[in-house]
């Protein structure tokens, strides 16, 4: 009996210490979501201005043609960039995006080339025997433009050299603090229509005639790789915000579960203790009665 009580008590202690950790991680994740969200919105002005300028330059260009626009007539091999976290304990965050990527790979049925950002993706695909072309770790927490550049350059290189005929990006879109979902977007070839469609650029009043230095075509070609890098950065930043949001949710659930477990265990503990006390009293009463009974008989 006493031994059982001690075991329950020990169990409560261990759940409590686990709960302490999960609660701390929940708080850390909460503060990180805010920062990550700020980074997503801080990066927006650049992306918007870039898009506007490119639309403008494309209109002034005699022709826009760049290897990154190159539509291949036959798709033999598809490159996939997958963005996951380096760390676990983020609920289904990593497995959702990995599952999405793997389904894509199976759906397109072509040869594939993997570009993996995040330790979880690397571990998963390595274990499954996939061939990994490039992998990066240590960027998911706080992605920098330099990280996005590395990824974008590797993808662009594989595309322009003809190793792959298309490149896709799989990441977790941050819709809000409550919803994040894994999405697949096409990175390469770049969508030409994006820059040439009429309604894309909204200019007020008469369009000023610009002086370009150097020629518009040259400026445009210079902007394209940056546009690609920026798309990757945007994906990484959103993925990072999603990761923190998913971790906060997972840790909150873990903390709540621990609370419930502690309540239940405490109840069991109290019951067991009550039973033990009752038994002890019964023994005492039984013993006392036996004594008085014996005394009466003697008298």
């Amino acid at each position: 009996m006493a031994q059982q009580l001690r075991a329950i008590k020990r169990r409560i202690g261990s759940v409590k210490s686990t709960q302490k950790i999960t609660r701390a991680m929940e708080l850390i994740a909460s503060s990180r979501i805010i920062k990550a969200q700020q980074r997503v919105s801080a990066a927006r002005p650049y992306a918007e201005e870039m898009r506007r300028l490119m639309g403008m330059v494309a209109k002034k260009s005699v022709s826009i043609d760049h290897p990154l626009f190159n539509q291949r007539s036959e798709i033999r091999r598809i490159g996939t960039v997958v963005i996951t976290a380096d760390r676990g304990l983020a609920g289904a965050y990593n497995s959702n995006v990995i599952r999405r990527a793997e389904r894509d790979l199976q759906a397109h049925g072509k040869e594939s080339m993997l570009f993996l950002a995040g330790k979880k993706a690397v571990n998963y695909f390595k274990f499954r025997g996939y061939e990994i072309e490039h992998s990066w770790t240590g960027m998911s927490d706080r992605p920098h433009i330099d990280d996005a550049r590395e990824v974008a350059r590797a993808a662009a290189e594989a595309f322009t050299s003809g190793e792959v005929d298309e490149v896709r990006l799989v990441y977790t879109r941050f819709d809000s603090a409550l919803t994040q979902r894994p999405v697949t977007i096409q990175l390469l070839p770049l969508p030409k229509e994006e820059f040439t469609s009429e309604d894309e650029v909204i200019t007020k009043g008469p369009k000023p005639s610009y002086v370009f230095e150097p020629e518009p075509e040259e400026i445009f070609d210079g902007l394209l790789p940056r546009y690609l890098e920026n798309t990757v950065l945007q994906g990484m930043l959103e993925a990072s915000a999603s990761e923190h949001a998913a971790r906060r949710r997972a840790m909150k659930a873990a903390t709540d579960n621990a609370e419930e477990l502690i309540d239940n265990l405490t109840r069991v503990y109290n019951q067991a203790r009550q039973a033990e006390i009752t038994t002890e009293i019964m023994e005492v009463v039984g013993g006392a009665e036996a004594l008085t009974g014996a005394a009466k008989q003697e008298a």
């Binding site: 300028l53 403008m56 330059v57 000023p208 005639s209 610009y210 002086v211 370009f212 230095e213 150097p214 518009p216 040259e218 400026i219 210079g222």
Partner: peptide, 18 residues
Amino acid sequence: SPEGEFAILRGHIPFLAA
């Protein structure tokens, strides 16, 4: 820019440079 140093003052002709 690749073509040399330039300065922009208020009212400069619309200009786009790498």
